[in-house]
């Protein structure tokens, strides 16, 4: 991990030093922002760790916890909302046994990601399973796709 992070630091220095871009690259490499990464960046670049965390917790894109290997994305945009996204999401949470704010299954395999709008409003409500779009979704369709995904894992 460390050599990878040092590469990112070098690239960061070359491109003029932008915290958001550095964190975006880190997340692309690891799927989340590991604590060790922030500590190393802070030491190497002389920027307080709090500034990294300030940025990382401000933007919705950044995760501070590992992400599941597979991702179910549920759109909560307005068009999806009025077409019953809430019901689908609670169905998915039941299927994945996710409690409260928990977003990743206990086995760490599947993450449920709720996003504001994916721009597929004309097929609302929309659920993505590992990037594949399922438009005009229902709770049944979402659960069926998750079961299919489980079979493949």
């Amino acid at each position: 991990m460390e050599s990878r992070l040092r590469e990112l630091i070098e690239r960061h220095r070359e491109t003029g030093g932008n915290i958001i871009s550095l964190l975006q690259d880190t997340q692309e490499a690891f799927g989340y922002i590991p604590r060790d990464a922030v500590m190393l960046f802070s030491r190497e670049l002389g920027i307080a760790a709090s500034r990294f965390y300030g940025v990382a917790t401000f933007y919705a894109q950044f995760r501070l916890k590992p992400v599941g290997r597979h991702k179910v994305t549920a759109c909560c945009g307005t068009a999806c909302h009025v077409r019953g996204a809430d019901r689908i999401i609670s169905g998915i949470q039941r299927e994945l046994h996710l409690a409260g704010e928990q977003d990743t299954t206990d086995d760490g395999l599947i993450t449920l990601d709720k996003v504001a709008c994916l721009g597929f409003c004309s097929f609302a409500p929309v659920v993505l399973v590992d990037g594949a779009v399922h438009g005009k979704a229902t709770t049944d369709i979402a659960i069926r796709e998750i079961k299919n995904l489980r079979k493949k894992i």
Binding site: C76, G77, T78, A79, H81, A116, C117, G119, F120, C121
Partner: peptide, 12 residues
């Protein structure tokens, strides 16, 4: 930065 949930003209 089309953040309005329910608008996707910029993307299109």
């Amino acid at each position: 930065d089309e953040g309005d949930p329910g608008a996707f003209m910029d993307r299109a």
